[in-house]
Amino acid sequence: MSATSTSDPVREEEFLAALDAGHRVEPFEWMPDTYRTLNIKFIEMHANSEIMGALPEREWIARAPTLKRKRSLAAKVQDEVGHAHLIYRVAESLGRPRRAMYEDLIAGTGRFHNVFHYPTYTWGDVACIGFLVDGAAIVTQRALLDTSYAPYARVMKRVVAEESLHYRHGEDIMLALAAGTDEQFEMLQEAVNRWWEPIMHFFGTAVPAEEDPMIRWGVKGRSNEASRQEWLNTYVPKMWDMGIDTPDPKLAYDPDTGWWDYTEPDWDRLAQIVKGEPTEATASRLYWRQLLHRHHAWVHDIVLGPEPATAA
């Protein structure tokens, strides 16, 4: 980081004006503290979510119902770990070391998306995570192709390209269950009912774009509600088409306004999930992850190289 001050109101105004004009920020440029902090917070949470998203799905590699699903699920989870690998690097370029982020995550102090706090019960959950939850991630990640921090936008290009494989992987699993036996169909419908509210939560409350600091500072380009509407546009018709119902009786598309109406999810429950005591699923995934991490302290310097004396 340069020696120049990072809190200079005049430069800050210029910086914001440049963002509004479409300027992309490179790591070597001057940037206000607020910009750096907001980006680190957002990007670290994104990378953490890729890792935490891999954990529930990985549980099913061992249980997959066919060898084809076993290897493609393993490959899909591998991609999610690969996304974490790429995205942590972006946060690192803003000054936050990867090991610190990783250790905070497994210590339970790192934040990640609500949808990765839930347990999985059946292969129906694998279908829902693979298609609907990944779909929600695809919607928000596509909106990040325009993010103002250039290294993040570049990494998102590659991630989004890989996600179109995940989209097919997810739809393929979903369609197989929908067209399958009554038990398979029920397995899917029940899982959709379970995942509905977490996915509605995923996009966040409908904060107006003008009031969202992540939008003001050019991290996000689109409002929470716009992302939620886009997800509904794509995924609800897909489910209805395959005979899967959505559990919200109020859910309806208005062709005149081009907008979906839905029951407001319980936002207190979201706050409870992401800020309250960890869910049982999260506690056990993290506990076990911590145990593995501690047990392997001896190998970290060997596989990563010794940690630099001072953070670069």
Partner: peptide, 27 residues
Amino acid sequence: HRASHWTGVAPSLEEDLAFSTIAQAGI
């Protein structure tokens, strides 16, 4: 099958990716 245990929990992200490929090759 046993190698796939490490997917998502290997000692480094780089190694996670490498070992996952070895698990997939087995399957």
